[in-house]
């Protein structure tokens, strides 16, 4: 378990990562990560997942391979990352430099009542990501670290992995659109210039 005094605020963290985002493309994992990305400001280059648990990071990988000239960011929680942990091996085999994976780690399943994840029992995602060959930063515990991470996401020296220790505070939910057809159409229009 982590010292609660050193835990970061999830909304402040995500707002910092998405400030001055340039042409960053974002896939957000179901639950609070999607609400955090929406709270930082809606953008057609955000793709919000509301389900498909475990798929956030793999989806960002496919996008990063298709758009190698743009930075791609997966933002998700520790529960979703644990379910899709094999995707870190899949990324390690491909090593796309433009892909970053950021985990908002509060050590609980926030959507379902705050049950502890495996992280609360000592599992370390940074070690896993490092073992999979990603450029994994040490656990981020202060906003200076978040600021440095925001710069590195745009530098395309990845694949980058960052695990940010956040507090388990639940915010009022900021709900983006749930219509997947609309979300994917506006994303492709913004990124590819394609009409639906």
């Amino acid at each position: 378990m982590t010292d609660s005094l050193s835990l970061l605020d999830r909304r402040e963290t995500v707002a910092c990562l998405l400030r001055d985002r340039g042409d960053l493309l974002v896939i957000s994992g179901l639950g609070s990560a999607t609400y955090d990305v929406a709270a930082a400001g809606d953008d057609p280059r955000n793709f919000y997942l509301w389900g498909a648990m475990g798929g956030t990071v793999a989806m960002a990988l496919g996008l990063a391979l298709a758009q190698p000239e743009r930075p791609v960011l997966a933002i998700t929680g520790d529960g979703d990352m644990l379910m899709g942990m094999g995707s870190l091996a899949t990324i390690g085999a491909k090593r796309p430099a433009n892909l970053s994976v950021v985990v908002l780690d509060n050590e609980v399943y926030g959507e379902t009542g705050g049950q502890p994840t495996a992280i609360a029992h000592g599992v370390d995602l940074v070690t896993v990501a490092r073992g999979c060959g990603l450029n994994a930063l040490d656990h981020i515990r202060d906003m200076n670290g978040v600021g440095t991470l925001a710069e590195r996401i745009h530098r395309a020296d990845g694949p980058l992995f960052a695990n940010i220790k956040i507090d388990a505070q639940e915010y009022v939910r900021v709900l983006p659109a749930r219509d997947g057809v609309w979300l994917r159409s506006r994303f492709r229009e913004a990124v590819l210039g394609l009409a639906p």
């Binding site: 475990g54 798929g55 989806m59 496919g62 996008l63 298709a66 899949t90 394609l194």
Partner: peptide
């Protein structure tokens, strides 16, 4: 299942 998500992301990016 990773492949389904990966290819969905690929299509978002035009592949």
């Amino acid at each position: 299942e990773e492949g389904i998500a990966l290819l969905a992301g690929a299509w978002l990016g035009g592949d």
